[in-house]
Design a protein around this nucleic acid. Structure first.
Lengths: 265, 265
DNA sequence: TGAGAAGTCACCCGATTAATCACAAAAAGG
DNA sequence: CCTTTTTGTGATTAATCGGGTGACTTCTCA
């Protein structure tokens, strides 16, 4: 939603630092010091857009994080740790947070949740849809039927399919061109290809999937099929779970028909 | 400064989620849904402390993150992804941010920075001091002299010393008890131990270090040497760099005297 | 048709923070 | 030694954001 590669590195760095929890002044000060290496409040104020009198607060904040050291002289001088050390520090800090979160969440989960028989859920955004797809792949026990346009068949999806294949899950794939098929066959030896009866790529459909005949997902590219493929927000999906779930019933009918009438590879 | 292990998991999880950029309502909603699995606005409002009318906003926010799916019915029902998937998602997202930051910072660094001859820098906090120590260890080329109280000789420091040892850096260690010495000798075969003339552990000193005779650091435990050792904020250090740096000059004199008069192991 | 629940919207208020200013202490320079 | 500039600290203001509450419409079900 934000990080633009064509931006000046100062802006990009500042933005990321802010998202890590630094104030804008602190972020800008850090970036300024990162290029200066060492400097006084005035130096920092000049290269960054931070008011001189606020540099001191910003440095205090950075000092709290252990990112900047202060020389008690007049004028005070400020020193930054190497950018690489800073990045590693953030990574370490974050990993710690993630671990804390994981254990905390693991200690919850008392309420038992049974699969919903009724209801159709919506998912927005390329990343979220892919995530859901991956999650469903990993829960598959017997069969995965998956139709997709080729752009959406990314490496991580293939990996998950390959993993399922090794787990003994039967995999049926459609929608990919014949040259890609060969390549897939190598990575997922157990996969079966089938031709879609529809001219799949001409519709605005994205993926269509069924897991164990009881969990289905279908997605569409909301802005048509053109340049929007690169737009991560352009995909919307709905999914449902349970033998009697309406979406599941409908899609199961379609898929069964497809699989029966399609030519097999 | 915050994460307390003895806290209820709900609070801990909420706190972490907030630090990842979620609003408090969104965080609490997520935690509620994580234990419910699925639920309506009222359900969420009851188990969490979120006003019912605001659950919708919170869910919107979570939906943006791809953490929650929404069923368009009345009442609306909300579904969360598995906690494990959520954690992985955060980790992936964060790694991406860290990479962005790293490249952005890497594209800066135009101003050349030479080692400061003058000035003494201050560092506060256990983690920051350790970080600085590690950084200095890695830049060592010839010699590391390091006195420390035993509590502060953590595994990562030993690793860094061991790495320096393999790089051919001469290592001189003091302050550790004789039984720990043996264990250290195994991990860092090239290390030389020497006895401190002071009763090191009775002072409030923490570490004392010299790198290549031109970079020094000394730390103190600010609240005495008792229970404060466990308090990460209780350590303060100063350091200096350069042949003529005053701190370096002083410490070099001390160390040389120490090394000359001490008994060798 | 009416009661209650569900969903949406708008508003208030307090906290945070960016931004500016005023002022005292300290260097610098004649 | 005094003046001027620079430096550091603190107070103040303005604006934004987010938590909290309630009004109001819509929907569901008896």
């Amino acid at each position: 939603m934000s990080s633009n590669p064509s931006k000046e590195p100062e802006t990009a760095a500042t933005e990321q630092l802010e998202r890590f929890g630094l104030s804008t002044y602190a972020a800008r000060t850090f970036v300024a010091l990162a290029s200066l290496g060492t400097g006084t409040a005035r130096d920092v104020s000049q290269v960054s857009e931070v008011p001189r009198t606020r540099v001191y607060d910003a440095v205090d904040e950075l000092h709290e994080w252990g990112l900047v050291d202060v020389q008690q002289s007049s004028p005070k001088e400020f020193w930054v740790i190497s950018t690489e050390t800073a990045c590693r520090r953030f990574e370490r800090d974050f990993q710690h947070r993630a671990d804390t979160l994981r254990t905390a969440l693991g200690e919850l989960e008392p309420a038992e949740q049974q699969a919903e028989q009724r209801g159709v859920w919506t998912v927005n955004g390329r990343a979220a849809v892919t995530d859901r797809t991956l999650e469903f792949f990993t829960t598959a026990e017997e069969e995965i039927v998956y139709m997709t346009i080729e752009n959406l068949l990314t490496e991580d999806l293939i990996d998950a399919l390959s993993e399922a294949d090794e787990r003994g899950v039967s995999i049926k794939l459609a929608g990919v061109s014949s040259d890609v098929q060969e390549q897939i066959q190598e990575e997922i030896p157990g996969a079966t290809m089938f031709e879609s009866l529809w001219v799949w790529s001409d519709t605005s459909a994205g993926r269509l999937m069924m897991i164990d005949g009881r969990k289905t997902l279908v997605s569409a590219l909301v802005n048509g099929e053109g340049a929007s493929v690169s737009d991560p927000r352009s995909e919307t999906a709905i999914w449902g779970e349970g033998e009697t779930n309406s979406l599941v019933v409908v899609l199961k009918a379609i898929f069964t028909w497809q699989l029966d009438s399609a030519e097999w590879d």
